[in-house]
Design a protein around this nucleic acid. Structure first.
Lengths: 119, 119
DNA sequence: TCCATCGTACGACGGTGGTCATATGACGAT
DNA sequence: ATCGTCATATGACCACCGTCGTACGATGGA
């Protein structure tokens, strides 16, 4: 039994059918949260909370993860002391086809443009 | 010279390349503004400000139209005493492919669902 | 010319949400 | 058992934003 995924449920996740467009858009409109989503989307696998490149305090980070979770954008589960994050792609795609992809893509595109302008 | 489109420019419209994802998402995250966008998207032609079904005061409406205009989502022009509104589809599609469609579609879908739940 | 209509400008108010500091709790490693 | 790490909870602060009322400006019709 070494280093395993804890089964304990986090209570906060909304059911797929309870994900609202309003919630998703509010969540994703924040730059820090959008950056988080982008990082998960571009990562090969799930990411621990601590591994994100964010510009705010840990406590503020916790706040943003909670908003993302409660809006139904991410799913979280414990793995030992760290907490893993994954996108709820299927649920989102079913509820709002094309939305997540469009936003992530736009976000990537803008990040690239910003990087270009910076040099 | 009867009932014509005034040529006067409204100064506020951002250039296409200055439309930011942040601005668009902030703008569209508000339910009143999203409703406005939806109404334009589903209308056969451009819509005058006064013809919208909105739940707020005229002055608040003006505020929302300004946000939409300055974010680059809509273009406005005068036609006599009323002000016409149109989506900047091309500019938006070029900047953020699929985004507008996904949001409008999701918005429609949700409106339908809400109407269903209401009866 | 006068009035009605449509939209804007400005100021005020209230709520919400992003931020941080600090303290607390859970888990793993030593 | 103890410590360090990871994340949360709580409370406070502040800025921003959605809202409204009122006053104003512009246009078109009677």
């Amino acid at each position: 039994m070494t280093a395993r995924t804890t089964v304990e449920r986090i209570t906060d996740h909304p059911d797929a059918q309870d994900i609202t467009l309003q919630g998703v858009l509010e969540a994703i409109a924040d730059p820090v949260r959008r950056s988080i989503v982008r990082q998960i989307a571009n990562a090969p696998g799930d990411m621990a909370c601590g591994t994100f490149d964010i510009s705010v305090t840990r406590s503020t980070g916790t706040h943003h993860f909670r908003v993302l979770r409660q809006s139904g954008i991410i799913r979280q589960y414990y793995a030992g002391t760290s907490k893993m994050n994954m996108l709820r792609r299927d649920d989102l795609d079913r509820a709002f086809p094309g939305l997540l992809d469009a936003i992530v893509e736009a976000s990537d595109r803008e990040a690239v443009r910003a990087a270009g302008a910076r040099r």
